[in-house]
Nucleic acid binder design. Structure first.
Lengths: 257, 257
DNA sequence: CAGGAATATTGATGCAGATCAAGAAAAGGC
DNA sequence: GCCTTTTCTTGATCTGCATCAATATTCCTG
């Protein structure tokens, strides 16, 4: 019986009562960021908007009054699809409940990511998104996604498709060390492409989640990471990872624990 | 050294000299099908076009004078990206050459599929597409993809994204039988959604390709399929597969060879 | 239709990673 | 701060699949 709960977390739901339809939609909150000032604007939906069109877009975007806490659910598989989200601060894991009840982690999301692309044309969410730490998002109602945004949407979606191909390569590589190294490099690329350090970052998820994502066991993830550290290819303290030798890492994919 | 050539095929290039710019673009060929008469129109790019807009679209679409033969390359990773393709007859495999030279099969494509979605915004092809049998395609130059088609494009792309999630589940399931059963059901769904039989179909690729795709070995694929056949869950003769018991198949994912 | 190449099958063996188990270290709550 | 819970680590054992090898079958070509 594959009882693969990945981590015995009871998922708490948060009553997402933001954008509380109190007449005026002044959903501006912590630090009341407008898109113009946002670090992620160039890669976000309104990348090419300005002036009145941007203002109009901003009026529709909703922000939460408080962050989602670790283990809280942003959206749940099966929920009606009404908005997509932009992750501004924190991190999420995406997971799917398979027919036999086991859950499979499909990916991790970091600041700058759009959440809900695969569900764009669907009536319901196909995946559950759970916060891994304190997490702030912008909520963008589907109606807001008019023709003017389609170009940018296509661009971001095609990017996500390419990331999924990377995942395929990672998973099909069929050796523990390869998967784990591939995972580290994937995360590193992700941060790098958002202007953050590729060699020094924070891994908010636990080993059970990583293992679930990679189709392996958390003990194996632990052993392999310990091995990489022992060879001075990475250094890990707490949830912080330091990549010391990218070339060595790539070469080390076949060497074991 | 993971020398994973998947099948020792020397890939022949075909000088794709269609749409041969002979002044008039009457690229109408075998059976000179117009989009209106095409089985796939409702799921294809021009789904929502008609009248003059459809006619204009059709004038840009090019068809080949002869099919691609098995092992011939439609496009090669690294080629300049100028068109996308619609697969009308036959089948393709998509593969990526990894940095270490090994090639990994990323997927199989059947009639009705759009080829090139992940490369839409890229200057070059990220994947090589190889014909598995006699294969006919429509070529759609990128310039043709104007705003009017973006809605449909988004729809198809989001669909492809969801298929990739299925692949992720398949690969992360980390047991041979699970992967193989998942593969069979994926193919079955694919045919089914195009109006073909979900239980009786043709598998044009060899076991080495399936194994490469799934991150396993062809011997294992052979043994597992033999096991499924022995349990009367499927029947296989030549390249034809008959699924006898869907429920049994799903249940059998843990039972071995 | 014959001969050769590609593909599939089947058996024997070895090993990477799963599994089981138990303790250590961190994180979180009061 | 202390206690509980979660997460991580490490060891011992087991097993499914890779690997190696050899034969059988199918496909292709002249």
């Amino acid at each position: 019986m594959a009882t693969d709960t990945s981590s015995g977390n009871r998922l708490r739901s948060v009553s997402a009562s933001f954008c509380s339809s109190s007449g005026v939609s002044t959903c501006s909150h912590p630090a009341s960021t407008d898109c113009r000032a946002c670090l992620f604007k160039p890669r976000c939906l309104p990348a090419e908007l300005d002036g009145e069109r941007l203002a109009s877009f901003e009026r529709h975007v909703c922000r939460l009054r408080r962050p989602f806490r670790a283990t809280e659910v942003l959206v749940r598989q099966g929920d009606a699809m009404r908005s997509i989200y932009v992750l501004r601060v924190g991190s999420l894991k995406a997971l799917i409940n398979e027919q036999d009840g086991t859950e499979r982690i499909m990916g991790f999301r970091f600041p700058g990511a759009l959440v809900g692309l695969a569900e764009l044309q669907q009536p319901r969410w196909l995946r559950t998104f759970v916060a891994l730490e304190d997490t702030w998002v912008c909520q963008i109602p589907l109606q807001t996604l008019d023709d003017g945004l389609r170009g940018q949407l296509l661009k971001i979606m095609s990017e996500e498709l390419r990331q999924e191909y990377h995942s395929h390569l990672m998973l099909a590589s069929r050796s523990g060390p390869r998967k784990v190294v591939s995972f580290l490099l994937q995360i590193s690329d992700n941060f790098s492409s958002r202007g953050l350090s590729p060699s020094h970052f924070h891994l908010p998820m636990n080993y059970a989640d990583v293992a679930n994502y990679l189709g392996m066991r958390h003990e194996s993830v632990s052993r392999i990471l310990a091995g990489l550290q022992h060879r001075d290819l990475i250094r890990k303290s707490g949830k912080t990872v330091l990549i010391l030798d990218f070339e060595g890492l790539r070469r080390a994919q076949d060497l074991i624990r």
